[in-house]
Design a protein around this nucleic acid. Structure first.
Lengths: 343, 343
DNA sequence: GTTAGCACTCTCTTCCTCCGAGTGCTAATT
DNA sequence: AATTAGCACTCGGAGGAAGAGAGTGCTAAC
């Protein structure tokens, strides 16, 4: 456990380093307004903090920088989720406009988040499990191609072109769609695959010739449920001094190119804010970074994740506040929207 | 006009520099198999080439590197569009698979192109002017929201959520859609805005109450015709030695983040291959790069553009060959597809 | 318990030197 | 007349030495 004085000095070191990116020396600390000790005293405290592992030197006679353990302590004990009115208003303003298309809104959120912080923002979702099938359609384009469309009550549209084998007749296709619509309207997407496999199959077998094949094609058209990923401020991190190393840039952007990897990074069930600092991250490519994630919900069900990624020397206070605010707002908006649409 | 010997040496310098990225000296040239002159002779020729502006020194006693003028000459006079069988087969193989969704195919092309070259590929389009309206639909989601869907005969689906003002009744909406479908089916997208404004308007005024407002909302839903942009190998250029400069990286990626700018870059009517080298590019952010573009057509109408961007020290021969092959193949595929679908 | 003083450590920058690659020119060679 | 060998010269880059500056740990005084 840290004494008050140790905590104070740790905090000053971290705040200063977050701002300047330079090692912090005892003299600089002693000059701060909130510090009333001499440099020598500070040095003693710093020696203690270093021994405990909260700060480090870059070389034997350098000032100190926070260690990952130091950041961890700072995040866990120092930061009280506060409210930043200015940014909160920006977020509220953004989310308040006429709310039509949740996906657009998410995209916009990612942009605002990265602009506000100068880090890279990643937003996942919304997952569409909770949304329900509004309508399904299959529209023939030519003799042997068609496009299948699935519309959900959230306004989400999935579409998929596919080719129709010669054995399947247009009338069969039509029958299938009728059956699908009749049976699946209002079904939540989470239950869609199950229903497709059981009830609907037996029903269709009765009416549709050459059922197996049709079904196969149809299923492939609807089974893909991509998780949407929105990234904002891809190039923001380039201005960070820790990004001077070209190899770091390379490995980071390689990672970001790989959507699956990014999705996996964020696809974690969670409540509240999660902070992983440096080597706390399992993914090697971001072990020099910190990742801060929050989720937004619909009726206690996690719909998606919003995250910011930046150097370990991150403005944790600001970022956590912001993410907290945004996730709450998104949850609220989502709730209201579903309520207003009578579901 | 260059003599044969000057041309030969220019060619050797460029080929060598493209491969090594290091200035080429007279001794190295004289050692090449295809060169039978001594270093001293080469030096004389090089002095001439430099005087004419085709090559440059990096400092007073360095070897030579090609100037932009040198590359230009090389591209215009040395490169005969040849056929690279291996890569051509890769491309053909890729395009041959069951052709269902042109957009997916374009995306895949961008990936293959960047993998094959290690540069960054950009593909624009396909522009959908030539495609025709297959069906339009408006599906109400709730009391005051709906999603408008437009399906074209190419399998392209545009959708747009919008809110319905209270004054507009559901039955009016239905009428509108009926009218739209009746009138617009088979109309090419190029003519869509015009028709919407003339014929359809007058017709709808008759049947639909509060027409003005409905029309306004509907139009906004269908007027946006985004040009799709596919980028492959975003991080490929990071491995190029000329990308050691962080500022270059920054300005390049800034540019690439701005979709509009990239679209403008490629949205140029053209035939054949177009090569812009270094400062020939108007856009400042890529004045250290070369951009090579080709287009693909449908019945002499340009549908889209494919491009590669890389350092001015680019493998022009390979890239031009590849782009040439791909644009031809894409044009063929497009033609066949439309033919097979009886249009 | 706190602080002043001081020797010490380490990085960073600047300056210097040396080496090698490559050039341009001149004179010799073909 | 064209080509080539020879040679002095130039410049960038690597490597090392020296000095400045920032900061430390320790000791002794307050």
């Amino acid at each position: 456990m840290l004494t008050d004085r140790q905590l104070l000095i740790l905090q000053v070191i971290i705040d200063d380093f977050i701002e300047s990116a330079h090692p912090v020396g005892s003299r600089a600390i002693s000059k701060k307004d909130e510090i009333s000790y001499s440099a020598a005293t500070i040095r003693n405290v710093m020696a203690d903090l270093e021994e405990m592992g909260y700060i480090e030197k870059t070389h034997s006679s350098s000032g100190r920088i926070p260690s990952e353990k130091g950041y961890r302590y700072y995040v866990d004990h120092v930061i009280a989720p506060s409210v930043d009115k200015t940014n909160l208003n920006i977020i509220k303003g953004m989310l308040q406009g006429e709310f039509i298309d949740f996906e657009k809104l998410v995209q916009k959120s990612a942009e605002v988040l990265s602009d506000l912080t100068n880090y890279t923002s990643i937003i996942l979702g919304p997952e569409i499990f909770e949304t329900r099938v509004k309508q399904m359609q299959i529209i023939p384009l030519s003799e042997n191609t068609a496009v299948a469309i699935l519309i959900t009550d959230s306004g989400h549209v999935e579409h998929h072109s596919f080719s129709i084998p010669n054995e399947i007749s247009a009338s069969d296709l039509e029958k299938m769609v009728n059956i699908l619509n009749e049976r699946l309207k209002g079904v939540s997407l989470a239950k869609l695959p199950e229903l497709l496999n059981t009830e609907v199959v037996s029903l269709m077998k009765k009416y549709v010739q050459d059922f197996e094949k049709s079904y196969h094609y149809l299923k492939s058209a609807f089974s893909e449920q991509p998780v949407k990923l929105y990234i904002g401020g891809r190039t923001n991190l380039l201005t960070q001094p820790e990004f001077n190393d070209i190899n770091k840039i390379r490995s980071f952007y390689r990672m970001m190119e790989n959507e699956d990897e990014v999705v996996n990074l964020l696809k974690v069930p969670q409540q509240g804010i999660r902070v992983t600092i440096g080597r706390e991250n399992e993914l090697e490519a971001i072990q020099d970074f910190s990742l801060i994630t929050a989720s937004y919900q619909l009726r206690d069900e996690q719909m998606g994740t919003i995250a910011l990624i930046g150097p370990t020397r991150m403005e944790y206070r600001k970022v956590i506040t912001l993410l907290n605010a945004l996730s709450n707002e998104m949850t609220d908006v989502l709730y209201l929207w579903y309520k207003n649409n009578g579901k």
